[in-house]
Design a protein around this nucleic acid. Structure first.
Lengths: 137, 137
DNA sequence: TCTCTGTTAGGAACAATTCCTATTAAGGAG
DNA sequence: CTCCTTAATAGGAATTGTTCCTAACAGAGA
């Protein structure tokens, strides 16, 4: 009796696959709540994390906002817009492994690292230009 | 009338400098609250962020926990213990700049990136070994 | 089918942070 | 120096994001 198949878990998985990428737990909850008013937030959070730990979906931790979930399993990096906080994928040449570059371990056993890029998306750039133009007159 | 000097701001700055590195806003609050029971949490959060944006202290954003604040301004990276969530400094050879390695911008203007290393600290390693030894008998 | 076991659901509780409004520091006028 | 005006600030209320707790229930075996 290891893992039970519940309607809720299946619903959460389908929602991640249906919605666009990089959704928050809150967005999944809102989406499911429309069709299934009795589903709880705790259920959504728990199942998202279980699915992520089983490797069925990918969890993207954002330092200054809620975690995002993504149905793609392929390894890739993310950029967060510093203005609207939208997250998108980054295409990057293979990185050199950073772990061997670490000196002075202080006994710490290094396991990996997260990289999150920061930037300004196209529409926020346009808005910023618009605001500058208004400020100029 | 741009920036006001308040007792609270000075207290927050002194607290960051007095306490050991990588303290959370909560820890600063607790520390100050002992001497100054009427200081509010909002005040601590706001002043930490103001001081960080002015460059007087450094803010370290942690994806799976509260932000940390550090009095050192020197550029360096951090490791978080995946077990006890303690944060410490990493000594690393200079990294190649990652921004030129990005392909396919999709109109995004890249500004920088955060790297957070993950690992297991010495005392958590010892505890893990101890638990294994107990499980073996 | 019935019982037993341990996973799960849902909402309550908690933690981290932001927001709102009365207060107050700073600057200028008298 | 004192009063007045203005906008930054303080403190706590409110909000947001996530975890925890207990009753409910899925699945396995008798």
């Amino acid at each position: 009796m290891e893992r039970r198949n519940t309607i809720q878990r299946e619903l959460v998985l389908q929602a991640v696959r249906t919605l666009k990428r990089h959704v928050t737990a809150e967005e999944i909850f809102e989406f499911l709540h429309q069709q299934h008013p009795y589903i709880g937030k705790g259920t959504v959070y728990r199942n998202l994390n279980i699915l992520a730990s089983e490797g069925e979906i990918r969890k993207v931790e954002i330092s200054d906002g809620p975690d995002r979930f993504d149905f793609t399993l392929k390894e890739h990096y993310h950029v967060e817009c510093i203005c609207c906080h939208d997250v998108s994928d980054v295409d990057l040449e293979a990185l050199p492994d950073l772990i061997p570059r670490i000196h002075d371990h202080h006994g710490m056993k290094f396991m990996g690292y997260d990289i999150l890029f920061k930037g300004l998306c196209e529409s926020c750039q346009r808005e910023a230009e618009l605001r500058e133009a208004v400020a100029d007159d």
